[in-house]
Design a binder for these strands. Structure first.
Lengths: 189, 189, 189, 189
DNA sequence: AATGAATGAGACTTCATTCAT
DNA sequence: AATGAATGAAGTCTCATTCAT
């Protein structure tokens, strides 16, 4: 028996993300992905049950990559430094992995995402939730639902990144500093 | 010659939004929309050039409906009241027009959206930008790119609404009040 | 709107029967049928829901044609003449419509046939059952389940026809006469 | 070198018969058979040249099993007892091996059957032909083509069995006795 | 204006089979 | 002998769109 070629699965993921960004979730096809990944389209079905399964696994894979980047060296820092750091790393990741980021945005707003995938994807960001829980106890943060604190941390920067990609604004150091300040103002007690 | 039936066009829009929410942008088809709208699929082509045209017009139509709701009675108010009011009206609109809102989120994250549609859609929210411009001059708001102020106003509440629809949190009056406070803290000078 | 071309549906039926005989139920495809019928394979789906639906409707159509041939001028005859006549007409039909006959044999032995189609197909042969019911009352036929009488009437001649097509025997007048005699011996009181 | 595992080949046969009855000759696939037989689909190719070869060998195997059952203890009996016995044993076999029987009916009506397989399958029933040849010489049976005698012996009971499986009639002792009587009336001189 | 008929292109997926171990 | 990996070919069916009325 032949050995599974781990590259193949990665090539498929890579091709899918590229194409989804170019044409949109609605317009990609398994055969386009296969062609770009240099495999036969039937080979995709060796690795995934079907299109939906493939997309959900891709989502989880990309989200994991993103969370690892964001929470790199996260636990050893003070609250505020950790908060600031992860925002910077998020911005970094988005700018350097535009397609990954935009794929996540597209997919997580579509009903193709499975309940379980959404849950698992959310849990990858537990560290930031834990940070806020801890901070709330120390009265560093507002006494509000943790989800709210998270939303004020991540959503504005992510929207700003999209505006950046659309040419409306420029995501430079200065703007990033301001975002961090504003996020902090929003969440701090 | 018969007149174009305004109802038909609305039925088509309505059916499209429903189906996109149920199956996703990737899975809808002109024939499914036609069937749900009780028209022949060729009739859709009487009203729209093609699928892309239809979706972009639908987007603009829904976004307009949303902006009208958000900026209802907007200009006659003080800065802070206008700010608070439009956030409340946004939340209201989202809760009462879930499918419209989720369609916008799905569509505006997809490359199917035309550059021009995005621009026109953005301009529908000029009132909030004008408000911030005015407020910056009065030193009520931080001296940062207006897009940033807008992002801190709308993004968190919209994400919170999605969390609400996913059963993670409850969008009640209390939480809404907190959101408004946090948004204000983020943008105020 | 264009008018439905009744020919198309007949061409599809004809092509299907031909191909099923050439390649077998297991080996035909919608596209082969379409090509032979000179229509686009998507056109088949204008006329039929799917392959199964098409095959079942084809079955009923062919079976009806067969029953009409078999029971032509059936009711006005005496019991024995009617019995003999319909056997001769069956043999005639089979010899002149080999493909139709063999299609029925193939399809009715496959699980693709719907319960309802089998029932409807069976009912098309009610006349022979009525004949036997009547004859049983007059003590012309054996007092056994009518299905049994039918089976002894039709099955041997149909198997003989298949043997004929396979080159094992020759279905000539002499053999047909003998078959009729044997059938009669089997069913008569 | 390992020996071919006789079990594997039997498992494959068994799985094939089951699936063909459930889904039909047209809908089975090597991979479905492999899955049901708990072997890899490439293993099937260790035992058979290809799908057609496998089906033809399966046919012959099942037909042999059937003929052995039918002609068990056949030669030592008187003409009429042998005739009656083998009809009873055929009915028995069919009732106890429904899937085997229905597979034969499906396969032998399809063009997938090879000329040679049909010939070999037919020869397995030589004993009944020999019986009729002998009986014709003794003027016990009608002086007609032996195939005809065979057809009047086997076809009605086989059709009756199918009617039974379709819920139209009940194949009980009483009905079987009548079938035997009718067959005898048909073939006897 | 409205629509059922029609279709080429292409969707997803499974197929029978071979390869490499 | 046995099998998981791999694939080109082909499967059914739906697609967006146009045609003809």
């Amino acid at each position: 028996m032949r050995l599974k070629d781990e590259n193949k699965s990665e090539n498929i993921f890579y091709a899918a993300v590229e194409l989804i960004n170019e044409y949109g979730l609605a317009e990609i096809s398994m055969s386009k992905i296969a062609k770009k990944a240099n495999v036969s389209s039937s080979t995709i079905y060796v690795y995934f049950e079907n299109k939906e399964d493939m997309l959900n696994k891709l989502y989880l894979s990309v989200k994991k990559k993103m969370s690892q980047a964001v929470f790199d060296n996260f636990d050893d820092l003070s609250l505020q430094t950790a908060f600031e750091n992860c925002l910077r790393k998020l911005a970094d990741f988005i700018l350097n992995n535009k397609n990954d980021f935009l794929f996540i945005e597209q997919f997580s707003n579509s009903p193709l995402i499975h309940k379980l995938s959404r849950k698992e994807g959310t849990e990858l960001f537990d560290p930031i939730r834990n940070l806020f829980e801890k901070g709330k106890k120390q009265n560093v943060f507002k006494q509000v639902d943790t989800h709210l604190l998270v939303n004020f941390t991540f959503e504005p920067v992510m929207k700003f990144a999209k505006d950046h990609f659309n040419g409306l604004v420029e995501m430079n150091q200065e703007n990033l500093n301001k975002i961090i300040q504003m996020s902090w103002d929003a969440v701090k007690a």
